[in-house]
Computed example of a mutant assay.
Amino acid sequence: MNKLTHDALWPLEAYARKRDEFRAQVMAHKRDRQVALGDHVRLLFEDEMTIRYQIQEMLRIEKVFEPEGIQDELDAYNPLIPDGQNWKATLMIEFGDPAVRKQELAKLIGIEEAVWMKVNGFDKVHPITNEDLERSNDEKTSSVHFMRFELAPEMVQAVKAGADIYTGCNHSYYSVPAFKLRPEVRNALSEDLIAPS
Rank of each mutant, 00 (worst) to 15 (best):
I70L: 06
K107E: 09
E154S: 14
S142E: 06
I70K: 01
F146E: 10
R135N: 08
K124R: 15
A106D: 07
S172E: 14
H40S: 09
L91M: 12
E184D: 13
T167N: 04
H145E: 02
K102F: 13
E73F: 15
R186T: 13
W10V: 08
T5V: 07
F45N: 01
N170T: 12
V119P: 00
L44V: 10
Y53P: 08
L189Y: 00
L9F: 04
V156F: 06
L80E: 08
R60V: 06
S190L: 06
S190W: 02
V35D: 01
D192E: 14
P177R: 02
M117E: 08
T129C: 11
E139R: 13
A14M: 08
F22K: 08
N86M: 07
E66A: 11
A89W: 02
H171I: 04
I93N: 01
H145D: 02
T90L: 10
F179M: 05
Y77G: 03
P153C: 07
V26N: 01
R23H: 13
M1V: 14
M92D: 11
K3N: 15
I128W: 12
R135P: 02
I70G: 00
L105T: 05
L74Q: 00
I70T: 06
D138Q: 15
P67G: 04
M49F: 06
I165Q: 03
K63C: 05
Y53R: 09
L105P: 02
A24L: 11
A106Q: 14
K3I: 13
E46M: 09
K30G: 05
P153R: 08
Y53I: 07
P11I: 08
K63T: 09
G96W: 05
R31G: 09
P183F: 05
E191V: 14
R19P: 04
D132H: 12
L12N: 11
H145M: 03
P98L: 01
P79W: 03
N120T: 13
V64T: 07
S175I: 09
V159I: 05
Q103E: 10
D123A: 14
W116N: 04
K140C: 13
G168P: 04
S136F: 05
I109E: 04
D20S: 12
D75K: 04
V26R: 00
R23F: 11
K160L: 10
W10L: 15
A99G: 13
A163W: 03
V159C: 01
W116L: 03
E66Y: 11
L105N: 06
I61A: 14
A152H: 15
V100T: 13
E46V: 03
E13K: 11
K160N: 10
D132L: 10
L59A: 02
P127I: 05
Y174G: 00
W87L: 07
S143F: 13
E139K: 12
P82G: 02
Y173K: 12
K180L: 09
P98Q: 06
L105A: 06
N78I: 02
Q103R: 14
F65I: 14
G168V: 07
D83L: 10
A195R: 05
A195C: 08
S172R: 14
D138K: 15
M117W: 11
M92V: 10
D164K: 13
R182E: 15
D75R: 00
E21T: 13
V41P: 02
